[in-house]
Design a protein around this nucleic acid. Structure first.
Length: 422
DNA sequence: ACGTGTTTAGAATAAG
DNA sequence: CTTATTCTAAACACGT
């Protein structure tokens, strides 16, 4: 099964850094970014190539009709699809640990497979999810429907949640300044435009004008709370046996200082971000099948599935962060991608391709102005990974999101984060 | 009608 | 307590 094709160590992955501050001077980044590229590479380098899910199949055959899970696909592995009861609920409200009353609150799973676990809401903010989708996209821009699709394909939770999360996604795109709308060409058919990440925000990364936020809680659908996987939570993932080589630690430390980012030490995982669980004010909408996400052929092909078992522990243990800078250079690796994605070779794992907004949005806005680097990074870094060797459904290779070099900064930030909490 | 995009309002929570 | 951030909920406009 593809049960672990998408495995993130829960919360650890998501501290959110919010941007704040102004966002002018987008340009000043290039150099800096470049200079920091080592860090970027550093991270990737260390990342262990994700093992394919035992079925090896790429969950995402974007050509397949959403909903028609193919074996090995997250959908197929979707417990909810297997008869497991699932109450479509609001993504957050209905299941969040934020709101769960003391009694209902389930401890955050320590190792959750968000790809197949419909009970747990991914610990990523919507902005992060959008970013992930964008990064997964092989194109420089992505459509709203493609974002929806990517999310539903990669996070089981959203496949069953109340579709209101889509409203939140749209809200984020509109409000979050780090997302830029790219109008459709006149001759381009279809609804809506495209979206991409605004590289200019990466600049903030360098200025360190962003704030860190705690990661979102792991949300568990009440309906599933009881059946939650037995493997219970123990220590925070990041509190595990991860080890970081001293050099790496030093680098991260310096980076943190430079950016003003605090190191979130191990064990710091605060999952407390909980919100009260609002009662459904209205009748829950019927979960919309992914099928509603009608994508054009191109759109379908524009996304890279979030694949691979991204075992952070393994990654880090593998000397991950310990990677010497020198090693980084070699990192242009081309992912061993799945046969299906031969071209993915282009998926260079180094900075350029990984683009993640560094600092997002201006402060003060009500909406998700800011994305969390750490979270984003963690969430996206593995996207660069070649996974799915057996991956059948791999998308055709294409350069990853090219939000520009600026995004590199974001990656760096992310990395710093990663190391920080190690 | 539906999908998309924008906006406003308010709740919740963590951090300062 | 205030501020920042995230998220939910809705209303509305527009294009296909």
């Amino acid at each position: 099964m593809a049960e672990s094709w998408l495995r993130l160590s829960g919360a650890g992955a998501a501290e959110e850094a919010g941007p704040e501050g102004g966002l002018e001077e987008p340009d000043a980044l290039d150099d800096s970014l470049t200079s920091l590229q080592w860090l970027q590479e550093f991270s990737i380098l260390n990342a262990k190539a994700p093992a394919l899910p035992p079925g090896g199949t790429d969950p995402h055959s974007y050509h397949q009709v959403p909903g028609s899970a193919a074996p090995g696909s997250p959908l197929a592995a979707d417990p909810a699809c297997l008869g497991q009861p699932h109450t479509p609920g609001k993504p957050t409200s209905s299941c969040t640990s934020r709101s769960a009353p003391p009694g209902l609150q389930a401890p955050p799973p320590d190792d959750v497979d968000y790809a197949t676990n419909p009970n747990v809401k991914p610990p990523y903010s919507y902005a992060t999810l959008i970013c992930m989708a964008m990064q997964a996209s092989k194109a420089t821009k992505i459509t709203l429907s493609a974002i929806y699709k990517w999310i539903t394909d990669n996070f089981c939770y959203f496949r069953h949640a109340d579709p209101t999360w889509q409203n939140s996604i749209r809200h984020n795109l509109s409000l979050n300044k780090c997302f830029i709308k790219v109008p459709r060409e006149k001759d381009e058919p279809g609804k809506g435009g495209f979206w991409r990440i605004d590289p200019q925000y990466a600049e903030r990364l360098l200025s360190g004008a962003f704030k860190k936020r705690r990661l979102p809680p792991v949300h568990i659908h009440p309906a599933f709370a009881r059946q939650a996987s037995p493997q219970e939570p123990r220590a925070a993932p990041w509190a595990g046996p991860l080890t970081v080589n001293p050099d790496a630690q030093q680098l991260l430390r310096e980076f943190e200082e430079a950016t003003g980012e605090a190191a979130w030490g191990a064990g710091e995982g605060r999952l407390g971000h909980k919100r009260k669980q609002p009662l459904p004010k209205r009748v829950a909408k019927v979960a919309r099948a992914p099928s509603t996400l009608l994508l054009t052929q191109e759109e379908q092909g524009e996304l890279e599935p979030l694949k691979g078992n991204f075992d952070w522990e393994a990654v880090f243990e593998a000397g991950a962060l310990g990677g010497e800078l020198g090693a980084l250079e070699g990192l242009e690796l081309s992912p061993p991608l799945s046969p299906a994605a031969p071209g993915d070779a282009d998926l260079t794992v180094h900075g350029r391709h990984i683009d993640c907004p560094a600092t997002w949005g201006p402060a003060g806005e009500q909406a998700a102005d800011s994305l969390d680097f750490e979270e984003t990074f963690l969430a996206t870094s593995f996207l660069q990974h070649p996974w799915d060797e057996g991956g059948s459904g791999c998308l055709p290779p294409e350069p990853l999101f090219e939000a520009g070099d600026a995004t590199l900064a974001a990656d760096l930030q992310d990395w710093a984060s990663v190391g920080a909490f190690l």
